[in-house]
């Protein structure tokens, strides 16, 4: 029994086979054109949206992490700067205080020196004045004593003795 006989026994008819072949090609075209292609496009479009969403989420996450990092850096930098400013202020304050103290000390010394000078001058002047007044008073007193108490001889000898003593000095 050859193959064609077997075909005939199981009802092979080339016309029916051809009709079924055409039938399948129609189905192939309908499914390819109107089903598989649009379904594939829909799935790809959705996958694109999902990928885009995931990429956006990843970007947002990265941006958030970047912002967090930047915030931390800014806070650290600010703390560092604040610390530096405080240290600098403290240093400047100390320097100013030292300077002020030094200036005050210098002014005090200057004032003390001036006061000393003034006192010295006034003392000197006072001494001079006292000296002058004392000489006059002594002279007047001596003159009075001499006039009232000493005899006329003695009046002559005492000035001479004084002149000699003065000349010795």
């Amino acid at each position: 029994m050859d193959l064609l006989e077997v075909f005939a026994k199981i009802g092979f008819d080339w016309k029916l086979a051809l009709a079924n072949l055409v039938n399948f090609f129609i189905i192939f075209y309908i499914l390819k054109r109107f089903a598989f292609k649009p379904i594939g496009e829909i799935i790809k479009a959705r996958q694109g949206q999902i990928d885009q969403g995931l990429a956006d989420a990843e970007n947002a996450k990265n941006a958030f992490l970047s912002a967090e990092k930047e915030k931390e850096e800014i806070i650290t930098l600010s703390r560092k700067e604040a610390h530096e400013i405080i240290e600098k202020g403290r240093k400047q304050a100390n320097e100013l205080a030292d300077k002020a103290a030094k200036e005050a000390f210098a002014i005090k010394n200057e004032m003390l020196a001036d006061a000393r000078k003034t006192i010295e001058a006034e003392k000197k002047e006072m001494f001079e004045e006292v000296k002058e007044n004392a000489a006059e008073l002594i002279t007047a007193g001596v003159e009075r004593i001499i006039k009232e108490e000493l005899p006329s001889q003695a009046r002559i000898k005492i000035p001479e003795r004084l002149i000699r003593q003065k000349q010795k000095v």
Binding site: L16, A19, N20, N23, I26, I27, I30, L31, F34, A35, P38, I39, I42, A45, R46, Q49
Partner: peptide, 23 residues
């Protein structure tokens, strides 16, 4: 063959429904 045509009809209806598919 008639059943094949019936299946083609069903697939045509399916193809029409695919147009309403949403992303």
């Amino acid at each position: 063959f008639l059943m094949g045509l019936f299946i083609i009809g069903l697939l045509l209806l399916f193809a029409l429904s695919v147009r309403k598919f949403s992303v």
